[in-house]
Design a protein around this nucleic acid. Sequence first.
DNA 1: CAAGATTCCTGGTGGC
DNA 2: TGCCACCAGGAATCTT
Length: 270
Amino acid sequence: MPELPEVETVKKALAPWLTGRKVRRAGRVDAPEGPKYRGLERAAGQRIEAVTRLGKFIVMPLSGGDELVVHLGMTGVLTGEEPRDHVRVLVELEGRSQSRLWFRDPRRFGRFVCLGPGEREHLPTLARIGPEPLSDAFAVGAFAAALGKTRVAVKAALLGQRVVAGVGNIYADEALFRARIHPETPSSALARGRVAKLHAAIREVLSEAVADGGTTLRDYRQVDGSRGEHAERLMVYGRDGAPCPVCGRALVRTVIGQRGTTFCAHCQRR
DNA sequence: CAAGATTCCTGGTGGC
DNA sequence: TGCCACCAGGAATCTT
């Protein structure tokens, strides 16, 4: 799924293309009216001042004070080449070259909206997003304090986006494996040393995946259509039944917070 | 408020 | 081009 490394890769490709361009028109294509595509018409006439990322959200501040916000969901793809089907949003830019940005999203779990000042409450997760894991804002002390506030499974806490931004199902499993932490461990039960290991593991896993251009399992693609190469380096995600890379015992699968979870019951302890 | 459950959606998969 | 039930999953929304 598109998580921080995938969205970061997309953002890097979009930034040189879109920054400074003026929106001629933006709107829904093959999609029903609704909160997932709200307010797009308002982007017309405004210049894209920057292409940034907050967790899994792509945020583009506009010259008129609004902002375009995109979440890729599970299957969302941003592209400069016209897709054959499942186009949800089209943004037309002023100028002759590369003047169309398409949002293709077969499953429609993604969002593409234009928000005015103070309207981020329309995206509650964005409004309460946690610190960026690859920035200095992600401090061990604050991470420990946030984890200490709840007894939900540590994996569920990581997926919540409030303790740390941008971690999804793939990298939660990978980080917990590296930190040798059982995914069902109550968040607040983690000793400080283990929190520090998890903090480091999250940063390692995400930065390595960013260097690989993300993880392509099925739908995710870089903006130029190429695959992210991190899939072959995954140690546990999607590998249930395969041998643990460390101890060789079969990796097991369970469900935590309605999410498939793969881990090593021997190496990862509560 | 916290925590868990449900919902959205459709391509891919596996069983028959 | 066989048919079809079932699954995956991020975030919003609903329920407890």
